[in-house]
Simulated assay, not measured.
Amino acid sequence: MSYDPNQGNNPGYNPPPQGENPAGYPPPQGPYTGYGPPPPSQEGYPGGYPPPPQQGGYPGYPPPPQEGYPGGYPPPQQGGYSPYGPGGYNEPPAQPLPLGDAIRQLPAQYLRITTRPSANTFAMEKGKAAWNIVWVQLLFLGVVAAILIALYVGVALPTLMSTFNSNSSIPPSTFNSIKTLYASSAIPLGIGALIFTIVGFFVGVGIMFLIAKAFGGQGTFLQHGYSYLLFTVPLTILSYLVALVPFIGSLGSLAISIYSIVLQVYMTMAVHRLSGGRATMAVLILPIIAIILVCVFVIVLITAVSRSIPSH
Rank of each mutant, 00 (worst) to 15 (best):
L189M: 12
P98N: 03
G252A: 12
L106N: 11
F209E: 13
I256Q: 06
T174C: 00
N132A: 15
I292N: 06
I237Q: 08
W135M: 07
G85V: 01
T33A: 10
I248A: 10
A279E: 10
A108R: 15
T121K: 14
G79I: 05
R116S: 15
G276V: 02
G192M: 08
R273H: 15
Y89R: 09
Q54G: 15
G44T: 03
V265A: 09
P27N: 07
Y49A: 05
I178M: 12
R278T: 13
T236E: 04
R104D: 10
V155F: 08
S239M: 03
P11Y: 11
L293R: 00
G8H: 06
K126M: 14
T33R: 12
P117K: 01
I187A: 08
P158M: 12
A214L: 07
P50E: 13
S257Q: 04
L284W: 08
P172V: 00
V298H: 00
F221L: 13
F297Q: 10
S311Y: 09
S173L: 05
E43T: 11
P188T: 00
L148A: 08
L222V: 05
Q66P: 00
G60C: 12
P26C: 01
F221R: 09
M161R: 05
V153M: 10
A282D: 08
N10V: 09
I291S: 03
T268F: 01
S118H: 06
L293K: 08
P27I: 00
H312Y: 09
S308C: 07
N90C: 12
Y182N: 08
E43H: 11
P15H: 00
A243K: 13
R273E: 13
I292G: 07
Y69V: 14
V233D: 09
G252H: 01
G44E: 11
S166A: 07
G60V: 14
G30N: 10
Q18A: 14
P16R: 00
P28I: 09
Q18Y: 02
L230M: 12
S168H: 06
R112M: 11
S166G: 06
G219A: 02
V205N: 13
W135K: 10
H224T: 12
F164H: 10
G88R: 15
Y73T: 01
Q54A: 15
I211H: 08
L111A: 13
G85F: 04
L194C: 00
